[in-house]
Design a protein around this nucleic acid. Structure first.
Length: 283
DNA sequence: GTATGTGTTGAT
DNA sequence: TCAACACATACG
């Protein structure tokens, strides 16, 4: 009795037995009604009719995001379960198998990413995209499949460029404009993909070693290269404000790992209450 | 306002 | 570990 019956049996429920699930539930004000419980492991109902996915790790809940489809939330749980607890973890649907090509690829993908990365992908609903993208050599990481190991501090890096963010970069547009000349020179490798399809997902590591993933794409409407999807989170966590300077780096090795950081607000040097140095880089 | 995700608790 | 429930607050 290790894992739930998965696959066909569960999928069969999808469109049937869904009659009175629409229990109304006026949120904050009150007027609570009973929420429909999910038949999937790790899936919880949300007041608005959506579904949340969560998994527990070390007596703590790890939120995996909210989803419109109950089954989608269940799949998110499955992904997390297999990353957190390994293949063989109890899942809602057919678990990944190293036997078939797809399963092996997915398992490898999971192994190559940290739990935090996987959770972030699930919450941003980019997991499928990134898994698919990982199958195309030359996508997110320059040097190829294997990376890992070397962190921010142990790797030789070169600064690519920096930019003082504009109000719109840190507003609610969820996008950072990459100055064209910098994009075409430093992100040249990915610019093609950025222009062609809907862009590529790039990984950046910050000074703390935290990995950030943004979509790098080209907007024809404004003829601009931009970082979207996930950018707003960076803005919030780093508390970026207009005028702050962010720097982009790249490892010098064959792997071309990318880095992003806010230039240390080398606090203005003040003397008797007067700024005599605003912290801007010399040269 | 609405959507998201946390605090908390009782049940497995 | 897990989900139910209530609700704070993040978000658009």
């Amino acid at each position: 009795m290790m894992r739930m019956e998965s696959g066909a049996a569960m999928v069969a429920f999808d469109s049937s037995l869904e009659a009175g699930v629409e229990a109304k539930y006026s949120a904050a004000g009150m007027t609570y009604s009973k929420l429909p419980s999910s038949r999937y492991r790790g899936v919880v109902p949300q007041p608005n009719g959506r579904w949340g996915a969560q998994i527990y790790q070390r007596q703590k809940r790890v939120w995996l995001g909210t989803f419109v489809d109950e089954a989608e939330a269940a799949r998110a749980y499955d992904v997390a379960a297999q990353r957190f607890r390994g293949p063989g973890a109890a899942t809602n649907f057919v678990p990944l198998s190293a036997e078939d090509e797809e399963g092996a690829l997915a398992l490898a993908f999971l192994a190559e990413h940290s739990k935090a990365e996987i959770v972030d992908m699930l919450r941003k609903h980019t997991y499928d995209d990134e898994l698919r993208q990982s199958k195309h050599p030359g996508a997110g990481t320059f040097g190829g499949s294997r990376r890992r190991a070397q962190s921010y501090h142990e790797t030789a890096r070169v600064m690519l460029f920096e930019k003082a963010v504009t109000p719109s970069d840190v507003g609610r547009l969820n996008r950072l404009v990459i100055p064209k000349q910098h994009a075409e020179i430093h992100f040249q490798f990915w610019s093609g993909a950025a222009e062609a399809s809907k862009g590529v997902l790039l990984n950046f590591e910050d000074a703390a070693g935290k990995v950030w993933r943004f979509r790098y794409s080209y907007w024809n409407s404004s003829q601009s290269y931009v970082l979207t999807k996930g950018w707003i989170r960076f803005v919030k966590e780093k508390k970026l404000k207009p005028g702050d300077v962010i720097r982009f780096w790249r490892s010098t090795g064959p792997e071309k790992q990318l880095y992003i950081e806010r230039r240390d607000a080398e606090s203005p040097v003040r003397l008797f209450g007067v700024n005599i140095w605003d912290g801007r880089a010399v040269r």
